[in-house]
Design a binder for these strands. Structure first.
Lengths: 202, 202
DNA sequence: TCGGCCACATGACGTCTGTCATGAAGGACT
DNA sequence: AGTCCTTCATGACAGACGTCATGTGGCCGA
């Protein structure tokens, strides 16, 4: 009896390629595919899959969000997250959401198949490099408000706009940004935003 | 006699998956793989491949840069560019570099194989959506100096730093940035940078 | 109950940034 | 030779931004 797999990735080409690759393994079988987070959720439940292989970045809910809901909707289903851009913060969020496999897309095909088997057997596998990065990066030093405000300051947004969107006074926004900038050792809020984003903290 | 293909993508998992997928076609044969732009160049020449399938974003020279050099080093070799993030400007640059196939990774596997065949036969195929975006976006309104300076202003860099790196006076840098900001209708240089990046102009 | 941390706010400060006017030097076209 | 355009530069000005001091109120652990 082979392992029943759901494969979710928004890139059609990659998804079918990966599906064929997994199907080559005699003990693995891709029974469902999805291109968005919502589709992934629906398909996983509908086909009652054993393991869900999810891309981290997808339209709609991302891989981790899907994993979270899957833990509630389909307990017993193992989740493997695959990603191109491994940010330290993501790994932590993923692990907290019950994800048991976490791999960068730079790993070999054989590894992916092995990890699927391991996760299906109840085991766990996290890419060592990613884990090292996550440990080195540590936890976010930002308070939740600081993170909120920083997140809103993407791409040249004005303080006024941020204040309006966060329902805060402009002065308060500047204070939060200032402390975030200091904590992250950045030169300005754009730099701070980039850093926090790289770390997966926002 | 099957078409001899070079496949270049920095993501190992994707590369092997794609290789298997192309190898399934009886008339196509992946004879070389590469993970970086430099590797791609070397392997293409070494194996004298018929068609190079290149990921746009790779460490070292990107897909388009490789295509440019390939046009000189291995004339007669067709190039197909595959990309996750299709920015309008890239398509134009690619076409100017002699690329005859341009696809987003969201296309189907069958399309990729077809395009490889078409390009090998001397034909041309550009994804219609990407082409529409490129036409809508138009040409870059930036002068080359403006683009240079804007490119250096990524992620919260100081004007001083930009000036130092571009060997210009800080005042001049501000002038160029100011005119770039105006031309792009941006609120500040970070916004302008993001816009230009999205359009593929820098 | 007290001290400490966080969320939120105001005002003042100095610096950074974007804008504009202006000008010098060099190439290109007429 | 004269007129453009581009590149590079300077100086002035207003507004945006980052920092700091300071204050209020709420919540939590000691």
């Amino acid at each position: 009896m082979s392992v029943r797999i759901l494969l979710a990735d928004d890139e059609h080409l990659i998804r079918t390629a990966l599906a064929q690759l997994l199907d080559l393994e005699p003990d693995l079988e891709v029974v469902a595919e999805a291109a968005t987070g919502d589709e992934a959720l629906a398909m996983a439940v509908k086909h009652a899959v054993d393991v869900a292989v999810l891309d981290l970045q997808m339209p709609g809910p991302d891989g981790i969000a899907v994993a979270e809901r899957l833990a509630a909707d389909l307990p017993g289903c193992g989740v493997v997250i695959v990603t191109s851009h491994g940010r330290p913060g993501h790994l932590k969020r993923a692990l907290q959401s019950g994800v048991r496999g976490f791999l960068p897309k730079t790993t070999s095909a054989a590894t992916l198949a092995d990890v699927v088997r391991k996760v299906h057997a109840g085991g766990r596998h996290v890419d060592p490099d990613l884990a090292a990065d996550a440990i080195a990066a540590g936890d976010s030093p930002l308070t939740s408000r600081e993170a909120d405000v920083l997140e809103l300051s993407a791409d040249g947004t004005t303080i006024e706009e941020i204040a309006a969107r966060a329902a805060l006074s402009p002065g308060t926004v500047r204070n939060y940004l200032s402390s975030a900038i200091t904590k992250l050792g950045a030169a300005n809020r754009h730099d701070a935003w980039a850093t926090a984003r790289r770390m997966g903290w926002i």
